[in-house]
Amino acid sequence: MKWKTNNLLFIHVTRIVAFLILTFSIYLFFAGHDDPGGGFIGGLMTACSVLLLYLTFDKRKIDEMLPINYVYLIPAGLLIAFGTGFLGILFADPYLTQYFDYFTLPWIGEFELATAVLFDVGIYLGVAASALVIIVTIAGDE
């Protein structure tokens, strides 16, 4: 079967927009700590940007470009999320207790590090990967 190439404009716009969306998704992910955003919505955004790539270029090309098996990212995300819960146990607090502290670094200034972010990384990975797996599997079926 001959693959039709997409509209030229579409391809060029996608090249820029996909990465804009990716950047925005990462922004959303970090904003989630005390503003609207977070791992779930960031993950979905990331999935959107990758899907846009799938939509513009064909599946084979993307598979060459991103040789990642998304299936493995889901349990990886879950493991990170469950694993951070054990930090609480290490300090003899209940499971999932979160800790945070403020640090000051030159150039960056004061910032906050919280273990909740690690949990969110897990959610981010899990959501992005599972959305991609679902859509790519259904769409990839001939």
Partner: peptide, 9 residues
């Protein structure tokens, strides 16, 4: 839950 996730690998 953890072992379930681990077994996927």
């Amino acid at each position: 839950a953890i072992i379930g996730a681990l077994l996927v690998f």
